[in-house]
Amino acid sequence: MSRRRPTRPSSADELLTELGRLTAQALERAELQQARVELAEALQRELLPAELPGIPGLHAAARYAPARHGLSIGGDWYDGFRLPDGALAFSLGDVQGHDVEAAAFMGQVRVGLRAVAATATDPGEVLSRANDLLLSLDTRLFATCSFLRFDPVTRELAHARAGHVPPVWATEDGAWGLCEDEGGLPLGVLAGERYPVTRRRLTGTGAFVLVTDGVIEGPAFPIEAGLAEVAKVVLAGAAADPAELAARVLAVADLTGHTDDAAVLVLRHTE
C-alpha cells in the first residue's frame, strides 16, 4: 500500500499561508514551553529556604543556578533547619526530571525530611522513613539526597546519603578528602531501604561541601573530573566566607558546561 503524500502548496500565496500557520504553531509551542519553564523556576525558588541556620562555630551558605537550557529546571534543592533538641539539620538533593512536576516533588521531599527529622535523630533513619513516606505517595519520581545532622555540643556531624554524589571536605591546614562511605539507593525506589551513617567530629577551621551533579557533570565532563575540580576549590577556600566559597564551587559548573540545574551547600566550621 502506498503512502499518501501531504498536499504541497501550489502557489506563492498558499506557500506564505502555510509558512504563517507553521510559524504561529511554533510560537505557540515556544510560548507554552517558556511559561512552563518560568513556572518551574519560580516554584523552585519559592520552595528553597530564604536563609540557613547557623551557630557560633558553624555557618552555612548555599547557591542554586538553573540550567543553561530552560528545559532543565526544577529538581535540585538545599535546606537547613533547627531540630527540637538544638541540633541543626541540612539536606541537599536532586529530583529526577526537570519540570513543574519535579519542582513540586522536590517540595514534598523537603517537607517529608523535615517532618521525619523532628522525631528521628539518626540521619540514616530519617532517610529510611522519608523513603517509605515518598513511596506511599505513589509517585513516578525519585530523588538522590544527602542528609546531615550537626550536634553543637559534641560537634559531631552525622551524614547519610541516598544515591547522591559524595561530599567534599577540607581543613585550613591542607587536609582534604571525599566522603565516599557506603550509601543507599535514591529515595522513592525501594521500600525498606537502609542508609548507613558516617560520623565525623568537626575540629579546627574547615569546610564540608555538598553539591548536586549539575555542578560536577557535563556532556563531555565526567563526575570524577568535576569532583576533582570542586576539591581544588574547597581546599583553596577552606577558611573563606561560606557564601563566597559556595559561589566559587558553583562556578565549577561553568567548566562542565552543565545542562542540569545545580546546587551547592557549604558548612564552614571554626573553633
Rank of each mutant, 00 (worst) to 15 (best):
L202D: 03
R199L: 04
A240S: 15
L202N: 02
T203S: 11
D241F: 04
V234F: 10
V234A: 06
V234T: 08
P167K: 14
P152E: 00
L250F: 11
E156L: 14
V233S: 02
T144I: 11
P219F: 09
T203Q: 12
T198E: 13
D241W: 07
E224S: 06
H258I: 13
G174A: 09
A225Q: 13
R194L: 02
S146E: 13
A231Y: 12
E229H: 03
G214L: 00
A228I: 00
E156W: 15
E244R: 11
P219L: 03
E180A: 13
A231F: 07
E172K: 12
D261H: 12
P166S: 03
G188W: 13
L148G: 11
R161K: 15
G183E: 11
L255E: 11
V249I: 10
R140G: 07
E244C: 02
S146N: 13
L190N: 13
A240G: 10
K232P: 11
L255T: 14
P222R: 05
R149D: 02
V252E: 01
D173V: 15
V189C: 00
G177C: 11
E172N: 11
F221K: 04
C145R: 00
G163N: 07
G226P: 15
D260M: 12
R200E: 13
R155K: 11
A225S: 13
A160G: 10
L157K: 12
E193H: 05
C145S: 05
W169D: 02
I216S: 02
D151L: 05
A246V: 12
R155P: 09
R161L: 14
G226C: 07
E193P: 10
W176Q: 15
G174R: 04
G218T: 03
G174Y: 12
V197S: 10
A243F: 00
G214C: 02
L235I: 05
H164P: 15
A231M: 10
F221Q: 03
D254T: 08
A225Y: 06
A253Y: 02
L178S: 12
A231N: 06
G206K: 08
A170F: 14
L235H: 05
E182W: 08
A236G: 15
L210Y: 05
A243S: 12
E244G: 01
A220Y: 15
